[in-house]
């Protein structure tokens, strides 16, 4: 990745961090309801992989920790925040919520609340790409714990048998809700599990943007060149609990400290400072600007937006005026 791009991505990652931390505050203020799963600590995963792909052209989907994947895919942060505030200006008009962010114009195909649910959906999108003959790929980000659901195996098997252009990215943050991976999973290294399906895979440091980008480039090229699926495991850590209703009691302060020292933003910032690409002051200035932008622009938009109208309650259950419901237009 070029230095200028790294600088741009660092700023985007800083935005992601501040966006998520502001969501935390809004949740505490009860402006955001339901369940809220934050991405802080895992930023290099989404940014590294999607820098190596073509967001807006390639299809992207994930489970419920989805705000940042949507934003990096091109969904407006205002529309995401307004969705979290349950407003009609939200990307899903206030009908989806934090776990169901969608932006199909940007080919962000959704956030889903069943941990392994997207496995076959992503393979299906890849099947559609193959039938239509495009050069897109489908990128599916899921957590390590999703791999313990049956559809992981079913989907990887089908993706391999049918040679589908799908990249599965495993964000291994070591915990399935509150249970550590060693206590729930026989094979802790997730990339090894896909060997059973003869799918090429790699495991790399998910906290280092450069490392993620380089590994993702190989993965994306493999899939786009028509060689079938690929599985990329990124070792990472979430700073917040599984969701906001999680006290983090199952983790030690020592472990959290170790991972705090490997913060993806700090790793990239320090590298760019050392290379003379940015100064610490410049980074601090970004931070101030981003916090102000989120407050004055994004939060204000979400706060000021109207609630969904009552007619939305029934609007999207079934297709409107579909002629085939009446046996065709004839």
């Amino acid at each position: 990745m070029k230095a200028a791009d790294k600088k741009r991505v660092l700023k985007e990652m800083l935005f992601a961090r501040r966006f998520e931390e502001r969501c935390y505050e809004a949740y505490v203020e009860r402006k955001i309801g339901g369940f809220l799963h934050l991405y802080s600590g895992e930023e290099a995963c989404a940014y590294g992989v999607l820098e190596a792909a073509k967001p807006g052209h390639d299809y992207v989907m994930t489970s419920y920790r989805d705000h940042i994947h949507a934003i990096k895919s091109g969904v407006s942060p205002k529309a995401v925040m307004a969705e979290l505030f349950a407003k009609e200006t939200g990307c899903c008009k206030g009908l989806g919520g934090s776990m169901h962010i969608f932006g199909t114009e940007q080919r962000f195909m959704g956030g889903y609340a069943l941990v392994g649910g997207p496995f076959p959906l992503a393979a299906g999108i890849a099947k559609g790409i193959k039938l239509k003959g495009g050069d897109e790929i489908c990128i599916c980000f899921l957590g390590d714990a999703a791999n313990n659901q049956g559809v992981f195996h079913e989907s990887l098997n089908m993706a391999k048998v049918w040679g589908l252009p799908v990249l599965y990215v495993c964000e291994n943050n070591l915990y399935g809700i509150g249970t550590r991976i060693e206590r729930s999973t026989a094979v802790v290294d997730q990339y090894k599990r896909v060997a059973a399906y003869d799918i090429p895979s790699a495991q790399v440091d998910g906290q280092d943007l450069d490392t993620v980008y380089d590994a993702a480039k190989i993965a994306v090229d493999h899939v786009r060149s028509g060689k079938g699926p690929y599985f990329l495991e990124l070792m990472t850590y979430r700073y917040r609990g599984h969701s906001m209703s999680d006290s983090n009691a199952y983790r030690t302060k020592e472990e959290e400290q170790i991972w705090n020292e490997r913060d993806p933003l700090n790793i990239l910032r320090d590298r760019l400072v050392e290379a003379g690409e940015i100064t610490t002051d410049e980074y601090k200035k970004w931070d101030t600007e981003i916090i102000a932008e989120i407050e004055d622009d994004i939060i204000k938009f979400a706060e000021d937006s109207p609630e969904p109208s009552a007619e939305l309650l029934h609007k999207y259950v079934l297709a409107e005026n579909d002629p085939w419901v009446n046996g065709g237009a004839k």
């Binding site: 195909m109 076959p120 959906l121 299906g124 099947k127 559609g128 239509k132 559809v151």
Partner: peptide, 17 residues
């Protein structure tokens, strides 16, 4: 793989299949 192929069909339907 009923869950798998049904989900795969649903995903394909998202892109016009």
């Amino acid at each position: 793989s009923e869950g798998g192929y049904t989900g795969l069909g649903i995903g394909a339907s998202f892109v016009g299949v």
